[in-house]
Design a protein around this nucleic acid. Structure first.
Length: 265
DNA sequence: CTAAAATCCTGGTGGC
DNA sequence: TGCCACCAGGATTTTA
C-alpha cells in the first residue's frame, strides 16, 4: 500500500503546513509504534523545529533542529493528517504531535503497524537501505550491478528494501509487467537487456504513480488515482490489456503476485 | 545461502 | 441478520 509514490505524495502534502513549525508536545497511545521509546519522544521532541521533510525509501524523514531526526513509517495502513487541535481526534490516532500553531500532526493507523523513530543517528533507522530508484545517479548500470551474486526469484528481491528501496507489492507486479518479465524468474537467468528494461519500467511506473498521487487502495490510503492504471495488480482473471489473456494470480515469497502468462516470460 | 512460515494488527469480505 | 474464518499489506524474525 503506501509504497514509494504514496509516501512521496504524503511528504509533498506535509511540507507546507509543517516546515518551520516546532513541536510542543506529543502523545503516543500504542507503545509498539515507537521502537525508540515514548519516553525519549516526550523528552526530546518538544521545542525541536522541523527544518525539512524528505523521503527515504518508504520512510518519511523529518530533519529537526539540534541534529535530531524523526522517522515515520506508514507500513500498511498509516496516514498522516495536519489538523487543528480543536477538531475531534480519531479513534485510530496512534501518535499525535502537537505543534506551536494550534495544529497537530496526527498519525492515524488502524492496523498499528506504523512506526515512529526519534534518533540522533539516522543510520540507526535507514543505515541498511538500498539505493533510491528515482535518483538521477541511479543509472542502468548501477541497477544491473546490484544483481551480481544474487540468487532466487526476481520479485522477492525487488521487495527487499536492502536491495532497492520503495518498491512494494503493487509496483513490483506493475514493473515486472511493463518490463515483460515473469516475477518468478530466477535472478541468474536475467539477461542484461532485460534488466535494462526492468530499470526503465520501475522508473516510469513510479514516476507515473507519483503524478497520479499514488494509488488509493482498500479503505486506508486516499487521494491517489493510479489504481485506475493498474495493468495486472488486483486484476486476476481480467484480460491482459495487451493480449487479452486472463491475468494470473499466484503466491510468491508469501505475497499475492499478478502477471500475464503470455506477455511476461 | 534461499525460502517459506510465523509474527504483528484490524477492517472488510465471503460463506453459511 | 449474525457469526466467523480468512485475507490484505511491509518488514522482521523464526524455522526448515
Amino acid at each position: 500500500m503506501p509504497e514509494l509514490p504514496e509516501v512521496e505524495t504524503v511528504v509533498r502534502r506535509l511540507r507546507k503546513p509543517l516546515i518551520g513549525r516546532s513541536f510542543i508536545g506529543v502523545d503516543a497511545y500504542w507503545a509498539n509504534s515507537v521502537p525508540t521509546g515514548i519516553k525519549n519522544l516526550k523528552k526530546n521532541l518538544p521545542k525541536r523545529k522541523i527544518i525539512k521533510i524528505e523521503r527515504r525509501g518508504k520512510y518519511l524523514k523529518f530533519v529537526l533542529s539540534d541534529g535530531y531526526f524523526l522517522f515515520l513509517h506508514l507500513k500498511m495502513s498509516g496516514d498522516l493528517e495536519v489538523e487543528s487541535a480543536k477538531t475531534k481526534s480519531h479513534p485510530h490516532d496512534r501518535t499525535v504531535f502537537k505543534l506551536n500553531n494550534g495544529t497537530e500532526l496526527r498519525f492515524r493507523d488502524p492496523r498499528k503497524f506504523g512506526r515512529v523513530y526519534l534518533v540522533k543517528d539516522e543510520l540507526e533507522v535507514v543505515g541498511k537501505l538500498g539505493p533510491e530508484p528515482l535518483e538521477s545517479s541511479f543509472h542502468p548500470q548501477v541497477f544491473i550491478n546490484l544483481f551480481k551474486g544474487k540468487r532466487g526469484r526476481l520479485k522477492p528481491l525487488l521487495l527487499n528494501q536492502e536491495f532497492i528501496v520503495g518498491i512494494g507489492n503493487i509496483y513490483a507486479d506493475e514493473s515486472c509487467f511493463k518490463a515483460g518479465i515473469n516475477p518468478k524468474r530466477k535472478i541468474e537467468t536475467l539477461k542484461e537487456n532485460e534488466l535494462k528494461k526492468l530499470w526503465s519500467a520501475i522508473r516510469s511506473i513510479l514516476n507515473k504513480a507519483i503524478k497520479h498521487n499514488g494509488s488509493t487502495f482498500d479503505f486506508v490510503y486516499r487521494g491517489g488515482s493510479f489504481q485506475n492504471h493498474f495493468s495486472v495488480y488486483d486484476r486476476k482473471d481480467e484480460p491482459c490489456k495487451q493480449c487479452k489473456t486472463p491475468i494470473k494470480r499466484i503466491t510468491l515469497g508469501g505475497r499475492s503476485t499478478h502477471f500475464c502468462p503470455k506477455c511476461q516470460k
